[in-house]
Design a protein around this nucleic acid. Sequence first.
DNA 1: GCCGTTTTCGGCCCGACTGTTTTCAGTCG
Length: 585
Amino acid sequence: MSNKQISELLKKVASAYAIKNEKKFFFQIIAYQKAADAIENSQSQIVNLYKKGQLESLPGVGPSIKAHLEELLKNGEVKHFNWVFEDIPDSVFQLLKIPGFGPKKAYKLTTCLHLKNAETAIDELEKAANSNKISQIEGFGEKSQQEILRAIEEFKKGNTKEKKMNLSIATEVSEKIISYLKESKDVLRVETLGSLRRSKETIKDIDIAVSTNNPKKVIKHFISYPYSEKTIEEGVISASIAAFGGKQIDLMTQSPDGFGSLMQHFTGSKNHNIKLREYALKKGLSLSEYGIKKNKKLIKFKTEENFYNALKMQWIPPEMREDGGEIELALKNKLPKLIELKDLKGDLHIHSNYSIEPSHDLGKDTMERILETAIKMKYEYIAFSEHNPSVSKHTNKSVYEILSRRSLKIEQLYSNIKSVRLIKLLEIDILANGELAIDNRSIDLLDGFIASIHSSFNASQEDMTKRILNALSHPKAKILGHPTGRIINQREGYKLNWDKIFDFCKKNNKALEINSWPSRLDINDKLIREAIQNKVKLVINSDSHAAWQMTMLKYGVANARRGWAKKENILNTLPYDKFIEWLKK
DNA sequence: GCCGTTTTCGGCCCGACTGTTTTCAGTCG
């Protein structure tokens, strides 16, 4: 069972408890939700923790839930859960997938409308709404009936509670909204908050905060956004709209003297805030988006720094706010100094359009154009890393000839410019049998190479791991490119034995790539943190296929920060000489 | 059901918004 499946089961238990008797099971509900959350966000496979007997290492998993999980993984089911689910029709859990549906609403509609078949429950619900049956039910009215129809429509379009957009899309949307909001003179300051500020790899809603003395006018301006498709909520201090194909944008306002508190609250994460508020409560303080209450007296904060400092802790970078131990470190004044974009001295994974007749896609821009961009970005060095020439179309001899020409071209380019050092890399396919796509004579023309998998994704964990370690054993294989191969929202990564890979990389001086391409972000934040704990070196690359894409490196840096990476963990923060020393080692 | 920088027992984050209500329940973040 995957972490996701286990987490969903625990969420179902929490929902079922809420239906059975919310008051009686109030704290069990919270406990199950907490455990589900911890499992969903765990960097280790729960199955592995179970085998190692380490289930209790998960926050929120105590003796009782631990025993249930053991039963689940041993027998495939849990007696206690079966009891909890006893009187609750499956249709309830189907309806819970619809935005705006919680346990109570789902249960009431399931029973009142006799939705017996989970598979058809949503269709039947839609029919009932269309034939005006829902507004007749006690507690529902005409408006909620319409709202249910809208929610079902959203659901059928694929906008479920899980649906999220990539970081780059969310960034673009938020930039548009922000520049629109700034047109209002009542907007004194505007910031992107929420998961976008924390640079999560995928974003559900875009959260925007505005500092203003006139929230009414700001909200009016916001809901009048020309690209708004619908006003979802319109309150006194906050509002939500849908725009750009149903993407939800939430706005919160606050006066300037309390804006720091709002930023802190609205940046989250939820778990970070809960931990922080629980901690504060023990000190007799109550935290909210308005400030800190002490003896019923509210203290406001203009800046986030002041807010955290008032709790006697360091300001915590947003990327770290996931309740992963950051609060404890901030209290001890021991937060790591995270890597920043400006620390990077070069980009090692760039595809030019040099006619290498590659196995995969060629870049769109010339080497010259890429070099110009690198100069603008003030890089000390870059590496050209096109895909290897297609093996099916070339003999070893012609591969050698192509790469010789390319080598010469790069040398000429450098002798003409001499401002940015050029490194000759290549992205070489790891074949299904673990061998490299091109032979050693051709590889000798390179300063080193990035080894990547682009085929046969479905091999077993053991075979896949062997395949990679075999390829990395080549002395010139220095970087494992997009190590898991996942494509966000499209393809799961292949299964790997990370203990073995970390161990091999550490011993043999190989680096793992943090690929900055927004739909890859590979390896992800959790693996980055684990790699660092295992003393494995990393590189942050753009994997650009056009010059403008070289700025995508910012997403890799954000991801690295989420993995608590410091400058010294990332090899392409090294100056050229030191970097080459590593490359040739 | 979990958890401990006052606690192994007695707590458990805090508030906005909507719809159906006439003081609140449900959902969300």
